[in-house]
Design a protein around this nucleic acid. Structure first.
Lengths: 228, 228
DNA sequence: TAATGTGAAACCGTTCACAGCT
DNA sequence: AGCTGTGAACGGTTTCACATTA
């Protein structure tokens, strides 16, 4: 939330172009837009000046029709007979996905997964700033991983009062997940990326995206078994 | 593939109850079945002897109707007027998802993420056996992480000829992703869990599930921004 | 001309409502 | 009496086909 106000000018919700677009954007399209963005980044880096729906579709493995439908939701942004300008398109998608905003993110639980996430280069790049990490292991507190200092979980409230994080990454053991999730909500984060194999139940104002590694492997096993 | 033959008796594809069920099972339902399975495991551990669609739905945050629809695809497995037997239901779902089969999995790329995945307890539990890990860093080769020995990536072909892995986990840097993915395909894995932020293109016989951490954060940011 | 943007149709998955069992 | 299993209605997403425009 806090990261959004004031957004240059302050349109009323009804006029806000973001709201208008976001409102009728297929859920599945959001995930794809993120992938287009990723590929456009590469195209821009490679100096490509034009890309059409067939090419872009090939890069993320979807049909040209899907690409055009997804992109047309941003408003007319392509040039008929030619294609899309990677730079321009990337910027438009980025704006919709919240890139360009500097999201303040905290991570809870510096086990091996938390450790890996702290070292992951690729969050910063998209505007996700890891502001702090928390753990309750005395040996970890005070150390720095990936440039992020590990703080005492016991002090999370005070630190977050100062930091004002937008998002939280939950990488704690399952058992402490519900309790920590509640804490994150009470601290006031607007969204949680949940790596624990547990459904966390929170007030609707907190968005949750789940990443269950074991579950993904199970999906893969099924896909293999069914060979789709 | 190898993990499947011979499956007790050998029904023709048309008669194979798995194929019949799997064929018309909504993609999204597979992910949910994995979550039901997870929760049922907990219920069984807690000694619960009956659960109905409303309760199970609450545990994975979906409607009772969705639960019933998903479970009815397994064939009639509940008791009308009562609910479902956790143990029995868990077994049925497990069979469909390929639990009970011992999947042989290899992991390529022992960076911090690969390291975390090797330490992740929860794969074995579901029947995914990490048979070997590979890296090309001399300092890592020969070490053991999470009980798994790290082998020289240069020797992957020979080792896999012996191991005969079913699935591969791709946790290498982006740049080497395409090359390593091809190698996995040529080795004969049937599925790849891809942690690299890159679309890998392989013959259709190889199933791919992508887990793009940055992309998940972006989805979260959008969900927050749009506060759905 | 070549590729976008978009109505309209087809498809798929979810929700509803209730018949059918236990 | 209560909850499952499921036909039928619904809503959302994808595909198709083409009018539109640089």
């Amino acid at each position: 939330m806090s990261a959004f106000d004031p957004p240059e000018d302050s349109p009323t919700p009804a006029e806000d172009p973001f709201r208008r677009i976001a409102a009728d954007l297929p859920r599945a399209a959001v995930g794809r837009l993120s992938l287009y963005y990723r590929e456009l980044h590469r195209l821009v880096a490679a100096g490509t000046t034009s890309v059409n729906s067939r090419e872009l579709g090939k890069l993320v493995d979807v049909s040209p029709a899907v690409v055009r439908r997804d992109l047309s939701s941003l408003g007319s942004v392509g040039r008929r007979g030619v294609g899309y300008r990677p730079g321009e398109l990337m910027e438009r998608i980025g704006k919709l996905l919240g890139s360009g905003i500097r999201w303040k993110v905290i991570l809870i639980g510096v086990g091996s997964l938390g450790d890996a996430l702290l070292r992951y280069r690729g969050f910063e790049q998209l505007g996700f700033h890891l502001a702090a990490a928390f753990d309750n292991d005395r040996d970890k507190i005070g150390r720095k991983i990936g440039g992020v200092r590990i703080e005492d979980y016991g002090l999370i409230e005070g630190i977050c009062a100062a930091v004002q994080p937008d998002l939280g990454i939950l990488a704690v053991p399952v058992d402490s997940a519900p309790e920590v999730a509640d804490k994150l909500a009470s601290i006031g984060v607007s969204g949680i990326l949940n790596f624990t194999p547990m459904t966390i139940k929170l007030p609707r104002r907190v968005a949750v995206i789940n990443v269950d590694l074991a579950s993904e492997l199970q999906r893969l096993a099924f896909a293999v078994h069914a060979n789709r």
